[in-house]
Simulated scan of single mutants.
Amino acid sequence: MARRLSYSARYEHPAEKLYQAQMQRQYWDDLMEGFRELTPISNVEEFETGAGGMRVVLKQTLTRDMLPPIAQTVMMKDMVITRVESLDAFDATGTPGSYTASIPAGPGSLTGEQELFDTETGCTVRKTTEVKVYLPFVNGKLEQLMLVNLVDLFRGEAEFTADWVAKNLA
């Protein structure tokens, strides 16, 4: 059974500024540099922009000893997470996108949709995630663990993004 999470990050900046940030390779490189404090192997593998929007592939490696005990029971090697994020062409009424995260030989999947839109006080990025783990007996615990960690990730990325936009696009 899948578990779902809806998360909204609110910003004081207009949607066009956040979109402008995500259309820059430097934004993603700086994000991965920040991640290296927690996950030493964090890189931008691919980055594409064009009239149709943006697509980035991020790869992070968590060594097995960094994983929580319940995750160590199913992961016998380091966990390599490949994350793909995309945003369509900017639309002032709302810019849709998607994201996925995968782990080779991993016991589940993570997919999501995101939307960037203006608000009266700035903008919001709404992310709707679905997590599935295909292991009987521990699937619910692992799904819940993934969602809790995902909220922390989204929060940290929102803080990073707000700071990055303020410093680089003000």
Rank of each mutant, 00 (worst) to 15 (best):
L18T: 01
G112H: 06
Y19K: 02
Y134T: 12
S102T: 02
P104F: 03
D29Y: 04
P96T: 13
E143Q: 15
E46G: 05
E46Y: 04
L87T: 05
P136W: 08
D29C: 15
T63D: 11
R155T: 13
V80K: 09
K132Q: 04
A15C: 03
T93V: 13
T129V: 11
I41M: 03
D78G: 00
F35Y: 15
L62H: 15
T111E: 14
R55M: 15
L18H: 01
E120C: 02
T128E: 08
A15N: 06
T63F: 09
D30Y: 07
D152T: 14
A51V: 15
E113M: 12
P69D: 08
A51Q: 14
V151P: 09
E113T: 08
C123D: 07
R36W: 03
E130A: 04
A15W: 01
L116V: 05
T63G: 02
L110F: 09
M79E: 10
G50S: 08
T119A: 09
M66T: 04
I103E: 01
R126N: 09
L38V: 06
M54E: 11
G94L: 10
T124E: 10
T124D: 06
A89M: 04
T63R: 11
L153Y: 07
L142W: 13
Q22G: 01
G94S: 11
L18M: 01
L145A: 07
G106N: 01
G108V: 02
Y27V: 08
E130M: 06
K127P: 02
E37C: 03
V84H: 01
V131T: 04
Y27P: 12
I70C: 12
T128R: 00
R64H: 02
K127N: 03
T95Y: 06
E12I: 06
R83F: 05
V125Y: 00
D152I: 03
Q24A: 01
L153K: 13
R83D: 07
Q20K: 03
T111C: 14
F154H: 04
G108S: 01
E115N: 08
I103P: 00
G140A: 15
D88H: 11
V74W: 11
G50A: 10
P136Q: 14
V131G: 13
P69Q: 12
L110N: 10
V133Q: 14
T63I: 04
F35R: 15
L150R: 03
Q72F: 04
G106A: 05
M32D: 01
T111Y: 08
L31D: 04
L147I: 15
Y19P: 03
G140N: 11
E45I: 13
A101S: 02
E143N: 09
R64F: 07
